[in-house]
């Protein structure tokens, strides 16, 4: 084809892609356009967070400033970052642990009513959160759990379990049963078989699941709004949203807070890119 027939090129350029040169270039241009579409909105926010209020919404002018961040941290935003990190990390650890042992049970054991029990776990995904807020608020209030990180850990664990179980069962289905059986025949207890044999194999799937769960918690707003009112306990989305006023919004702080809310997820995702891909492959695409 055109590409291979062209003049001497570096090795990589001799790959037969199945496209003619114009076709290849069209695909490259398309890819670049798509990538701009994907990145632009987030990049726009990050750039805006470094603009002065006078130039923030002006497309042509740009005055660099750190004032937005300075003023953001004056509101105690560092505390909100800590709260979000703490809640999300602990909730993800609990949820992933609980989901892993449940997923193992669903995948490896047979017991009466299993399909019903497994089905009801998965159905958890189809409940609209908006209808859960008020009843849970009343329940937690009765238990004295308002303005308490325990209630948020509970919520964040609960919202992530159904999809985590789903992903992990899918993943386990790809791990041959003969592996743990062999280990048990060799004298391992079931716990040893899980810990020494299954867990290491499952690790990429567990990482993918945990990342997904983290995302869900990190951006959650509805429950946090209802259950956390003390400034000391608030999470980042809450603090961010409070900058939108009735008649006026603090755009400088909003942009800075938005950039900071996005940064950790970006930093978390980028290194995990390959693991996520393989984890999702095994988890949600059972072959």
């Amino acid at each position: 084809m055109a590409a291979t027939a062209a003049a001497p090129m570096p090795r990589a350029f001799r790959v037969n892609t199945g496209f003619s040169l114009p076709g290849e270039l069209a695909l490259v241009v398309l890819t670049i356009l798509v990538l701009i579409f994907l990145v632009y909105p987030t990049a726009w926010i990050i750039v805006a967070s470094f603009k002065t209020s006078a130039t923030m919404f002006s497309a042509t002018e740009f005055e660099f400033t750190l004032e937005n961040y300075v003023s953001l941290f004056q509101t105690g935003f560092a505390r909100n970052i800590f709260n979000s990190l703490y809640l999300c990390i602990v909730a993800v650890l609990i949820s992933t642990f609980v989901s892993t042992i449940a997923a193992y049970t669903f995948s490896r054991m047979r017991f009466r009513g299993k399909s019903m029990i497994f089905g009801s776990v998965l159905l958890g995904q189809c409940f609209p959160w908006i209808i859960l807020v008020t009843p849970l608020f009343i329940l937690f209030a009765k238990m004295g759990l308002l303005n308490n990180h325990f209630s948020m850990l509970f919520v964040y664990t609960a919202i992530t379990i159904p999809f985590s179980v789903y992903l992990l069962v899918g993943y386990l289905e790809g791990v041959p049963r003969s592996l743990d059986e062999a280990a048990m025949i060799d004298g391992c207890s079931r716990f040893q078989a899980i810990w020494l044999i299954i867990f290491p194999i499952m690790l990429p799937g567990i990482v993918a699941t945990a990342t997904y769960a983290f995302m869900l918690c990190w951006t959650e707003y509805l429950f946090a709004l209802a259950f956390l009112t003390k400034t000391q306990l608030k999470t980042m989305p809450l603090a961010l949203y409070a900058f939108f006023g009735e008649d006026t919004s603090e755009w400088g702080r909003i942009m800075a807070a938005s950039a900071l809310t996005t940064a950790p997820t970006l930093l978390l995702f980028l290194p995990l890119q390959t693991r996520l891909t393989s984890g999702l492959a095994a988890g949600s695409v059972k072959q």
Binding site: T134, A141, A226, T229, K230, T231, A242, E246
Partner: peptide, 24 residues
Amino acid sequence: IFERIAMQDARDQLIRETAIGEGP
């Protein structure tokens, strides 16, 4: 203790809280 809440959420939240004896 000073708390700040987004105005659009303030009323609903206070109603929820006071209904069960909570709130600022």
